[in-house]
Amino acid sequence: MPSPERGTPPQVADQSARTPVLSAQGLVKHYGQVVAMDGADFDLFPGEILAVIGDNGAGKSTLIKALSGAVIPDSGQIFLNGEAINFRSPLDARRYGIETVHQSLAVAPALNIVDNMFLGREIRRPGPLGSVFRMLDKKKMLADATVYMQDLKFRIQSMQQAVETLSGGQRQGVAVARAAAFARNVIILDEPTAALGVKESGMVLELIQKVRDRGLPVILISHNMPHVFEIADRIHIHRMGKRTAIVRPQAYSMSDVVAIMTGALEVNKQSN
């Protein structure tokens, strides 16, 4: 049986890249009697797509919530670029450059793409027009949003069309582009292809790879094994409240990974 590696960075030549962008050690979270995290570790390295998988109830979503500031762990420590950090809210995590694309996408369907891109962080006109009359700088927001979309080579008829007129994949694309535009450190994608058809999924997976190629590390939460194997650089397998293994998709078959996830396949514990 091949032994999965633990905590090894992906194939990046640069030595400085060995510091994880985002990491966690020994996270614990109890909900009454229920142990949602039981000493969970986590490492995300620069320039990688890290898939986080786990069976329902494995505590994967609690881990992700802790990393995005939505849950405050009882104990354990989170590190951003090697520095210990404590998030008190999702807005806090966002201030540290960690953007999350929720499964619900968090878009306002009747507002257009530009409005949605800048929702909650609108840009105002310079001078008194902005400070006294609170006037939005619609031109700048349109120009910036267009650049964000072009950066990801994501094509859309018009940036001024309401988000509700877009297909599911395009909406996901808008949400990803928004997160990529504002994330300085990490982008977290929660089940980005769950509601999409084959073609649209392909488009979104491509988009995620472009985000990674532009230098932003991606955490991908997904139940879809083919998608995980298609784009992940490493796979973090979560089981019973903690990381049970990290594997490379090239070295394992999908059925092996599922077996590790469900506990059917034991993994040799290795020291770091």
Partner: peptide, 15 residues
């Protein structure tokens, strides 16, 4: 508009 559209989405975007 965002709050009227979808209050949960609005909250998640920091409104």
């Amino acid at each position: 508009y965002a709050v009227g559209n979808d209050p949960e989405a609005a909250r998640l975007t920091g409104i």
